[in-house]
């Protein structure tokens, strides 16, 4: 009797190749562009928040709780106005052309002639893109952590750290989704447009559960909600609350990464590349 083929072959892991891919992407123009955007956000956010309108502080207080509403506004602005948008842009820049741009350059055939499957190439390239995103996100978050305390009153290092630790997972989701879209459409422009639409839909509804508690169940399926929801708990932060969100986001990202590998295997079988 023939053994049924497994649905998903996990690629053989090659740390050496991942490191080289990461270094190569980190030094690319795309990566430098992403870093420039992150630094711009770091510099611009305090100016944007210098004199926030009272009604905005009031709304944020109503959504996220009145305690320490000014600081919650800072966290809201940092995640929603800056980092969420940067997550989308980073995803588009780093992952929306995965395999597709290599194919357009004629480089994919050369890479595929090495002893690796298409799914492995995708898996490694996506992990490297995530690695570059995490590098720049961490760097800028650390700079913000060190510099914002002196500029922003009521700044809490612990709350900012907790938020960054959870929100980075939502950012990784953005990169993974862009990679998956590249494989689904096999055209960079289509992948970019669809990924942008989906990501902004998720970002736009991330706060839905705060101002409409009846829809709290719906936002449980939104990684960006889990990326920002720690803001409501900054008064009584617990390691469990942070860990719970990190694990949830890891699950989201694992699913998207797995779908990408699965799609790559299908495309390899169909000889689509």
């Amino acid at each position: 009797m023939r053994t049924p083929e497994p649905i998903l072959h996990l690629p053989k892991f090659n740390w050496r190749w991942l490191w080289q891919e990461y270094l190569s992407l980190l030094g690319s123009r795309r990566s430098k562009g992403v870093l420039a955007l992150f630094l711009m956000a770091l510099l611009a956010t305090p100016f944007v928040l210098e004199k926030p309108p009272a009604e905005l502080v009031h709304f944020i207080g109503q959504w996220l709780g009145m305690d320490n509403a000014r600081f919650k506004l800072v966290l809201f602005a940092w995640t929603d106005l800056s980092m969420n948008k940067l997550a989308v842009l980073s995803g588009l820049a780093l992952a929306s052309g995965l395999l597709v741009s290599e194919q357009a350059k004629g480089l994919l055939t050369l890479l595929r002639s090495k002893p690796v499957s298409l799914a492995t190439i995708f898996g490694i390239k996506l992990l490297a893109a995530v690695g570059v995103f995490v590098t720049w996100y961490t760097l800028v978050s650390l700079l913000a952590l060190l510099s914002y305390a002196s500029i922003i009153p009521e700044f809490s290092h612990l709350a900012f750290l907790a938020l960054s630790l959870t929100h980075i997972g939502a950012g990784i989701f953005s990169v993974c989704l862009c990679g998956l879209m590249a494989l689904c459409f096999q055209r960079r422009l289509n992948a970019m447009v669809t990924a942008t639409f989906l990501l902004f839909l998720l970002i736009g509804t991330a706060f839905l559960g705060f101002y409409n508690p009846h829809l709290l169940w719906l936002v449980q399926f939104n990684p960006f909600y889990h990326g920002v929801s720690i803001v409501t708990q900054i008064q009584d932060l617990s390691i469990w609350a942070v860990l719970q969100r990190i694990l949830t986001l890891m699950l989201f990202n694992g699913v998207i990464w797995g779908l990408g590998l699965w799609r790559a295997q299908i495309l390899e079988k169909r000889e689509a590349f």
């Binding site: 090659n14 190749w17 080289q20 190569s24 123009r29 350059k105 480089l107 055939t109 090495k114």
Partner: peptide
């Protein structure tokens, strides 16, 4: 292969190191 473009951001040395890494 015929008709390919090498990655513009890489150098001959880094590209060959990258290919070697693909072989582990």
């Amino acid at each position: 292969p015929a008709n390919y473009n090498l990655p513009k951001d890489m150098t001959p040395h880094s590209f060959l190191t990258y290919i070697a890494a693909m072989f582990g």
